[in-house]
Design a protein around this nucleic acid. Structure first.
Lengths: 191, 191
DNA sequence: CGTCTATTTGAATGTACTCAAAAGCGGTGG
DNA sequence: CCACCGCTTTTGAGTACATTCAAATAGACG
């Protein structure tokens, strides 16, 4: 079974014809690690679904510090939502962390799909709602937990993903410097 | 014009009949300041749209510290999205900050509306997407900016709302203690 | 094998927190 | 109308969590 159709099937049921139509609108591409699919300042043309590998989205402030918004491995969606929906230059980079096979949906094709398969409107509504809930939780975690607690929570939530990420990226995701992350880790191991 | 219909009209066009149907599914209630519309631990039955006044959503950790997720004044939506979509006990409180008139939509009625007026599926998709973008930006702000910068950004973004909020709530929203907020404010005034 | 990047370690620093106490303010009842 | 009570805001001292900068070490990859 095609992963992206499985993903859609979690929330809405497409007929075989609809599935065919959907597949005719998407592209599948492979990317090597470190490839940048979207640069800050560009207008996002695509939303991405990951078949294999890992992607990340991040912003850079003062041309120095990277801050990771999101990771996406197998079965996850990723993109610069702001730029994609507003069709204005965004602040996010989308980059490959681990060699990846990615499904691309263009804004244009997605709008066609909304009209041709109204069920997809529901699907992407549910997707947005779930993502919103996750971001709200993460926001509250950042407001209320220490770096150590945020790290432990992340480990419990995505144990297998953590092991595939360089720790500077984990540090960036939970909002601390790589140096502090290293010290924190040493402290945790002593327990 | 009825505010909530105006809000919907921003993104989708309802026929007069659809508007009537929509209005038949909602409730309008008035609440005094400090009323709690939803307690943590309860299952959220409603999503709220604010006609007048101000509401806030927040969580409490360790039974001590409050952390504000969201404010909503005239024309804004608010609720415990997690609890509402999962229909499980949530972690958020929804409370009135300033005497308010609120439109309530129940989960049940909303599901009916999705079937009766598919355009609303689109409307709430767009609403979720916009909210997601706002939360992503706030998350990145919390990762990359100092409390002072977050405060200045908030002031620029919602100048009129700020003036209606007690500063302990602003402090909580940007993720600092009321004491530190007070000191920070004194520092900013000296400039 | 060498180069480049990631991680570790340490010292000094900064941002924000905790606790405590005082001052300010707002609403309520007498 | 004012006095009081409770809550919010301010101020200060001491502390904790996390950063910066620098340098050493370890790892990854061509």
């Amino acid at each position: 079974m095609i992963p992206i159709l499985e993903n859609i099937a979690k929330y809405v049921t497409l007929t075989p014809e609809e599935q065919e139509l959907f597949l005719s609108k998407i592209e599948i591409r492979k990317y090597k690690s470190k490839t940048v699919l979207l640069h800050a300042g560009e207008i996002a043309t695509y939303t991405y679904f990951v078949n294999s590998g890992i992607l990340r989205s991040f912003s850079i402030n003062d041309n120095i510090m990277e801050h990771i918004l999101h990771f996406a491995c197998e079965g996850w969606w990723i993109g610069d939502m702001y730029s994609y929906i507003a069709q204005k230059p965004g602040n996010l980079f989308i980059e490959v962390i681990e060699d990846a096979e990615v499904v691309l949906i263009s804004k244009e094709k997605q709008n066609q799909l909304y009209l041709e398969i109204p069920k997809l409107e529901r699907f992407f509504r549910i997707l947005s709602e779930n993502s919103l809930v996750a971001h709200q939780e993460r926001l509250l975690d950042n407001l209320s937990l220490t770096a150590e607690e945020r790290f432990e929570k992340l480990c419990k939530k995505y144990p297998s993903l953590i092991q595939r990420l360089p720790q500077k990226h984990i540090a960036s995701y939970i909002g601390i410097t790589p140096e502090f992350f290293s010290k924190m880790k040493a402290r945790l191991l002593k327990k």
